[in-house]
Amino acid sequence: MKALEVKNLSAFYGKIQVLWDVSFEVEEGEFVTIIGANGAGKTTLLKSISGLISNKKGTVTAFGKSIEQLSAAKIVRSHIGHVPEGRQLFHLMTVLENLESGADYLPHAKREAAKTKAYVYSLFPRLKEREKQLAGTLSGGERQMLAIGRALMTKPKLLLVDEPSLGLAPALTKTVFQALKTINQEGVTIVLVEQNVLQSLKAAQRAYVLENGEVVKSAEASSLLNDPEIQAAYLAI
């Protein structure tokens, strides 16, 4: 079954159209990255899928179920997690409360909350150390880990990840990408949106290139790494 099928998706901020007939597919278990320059519409694309943007046209099907009409709160119930731009954590809550809040309102996630939490801590031992600390006092890297952890607590089968490397030191970026790979190997389908094209092409199996709100290319990630156009435009080689 396809984890995600986006067909002719257009999205708008007020009257301004940001996405133009975007279509792409993700097989279950895949790790797909969507690359593109700043302002290409990558964040908008993820927000449209997860329901944070409701002003849109076209269809979005996840695991065979049509979700484009649903609210964000309903879409997370369809096993789609979103690690959003800007992390969107609860700054005055502790790390632990942030994680628990990921599972609290979803019965299927709540049942396995303890297990998932242990899994998140095994991925990011740093979060365990910071368990009692307020999210607002964490470093950028720790916040990113917490955002991923909170999304995992919702028990997603498909995880949308927005710019996890933004503002992170290279070593931390590596940790985060390694964690995403591990999460994918455990069976979670991943759609990663990134400006750090080199890292994301290395991590992903397939890639789509988004330019000015349109999909202009799709290929195996490894072949894009050797594509002269991609190298010139995004890899600065």
């Binding site: 709160a73 119930r77 992390r87 969107q88």
Partner: peptide
Amino acid sequence: TPLGRAMRAVAQNRTGASLVGLEV
């Protein structure tokens, strides 16, 4: 209580709250 935490979550971050399944 869960309801109280939901209210705090919504107060602190609306977007984050809707992404964990809260109808804001």
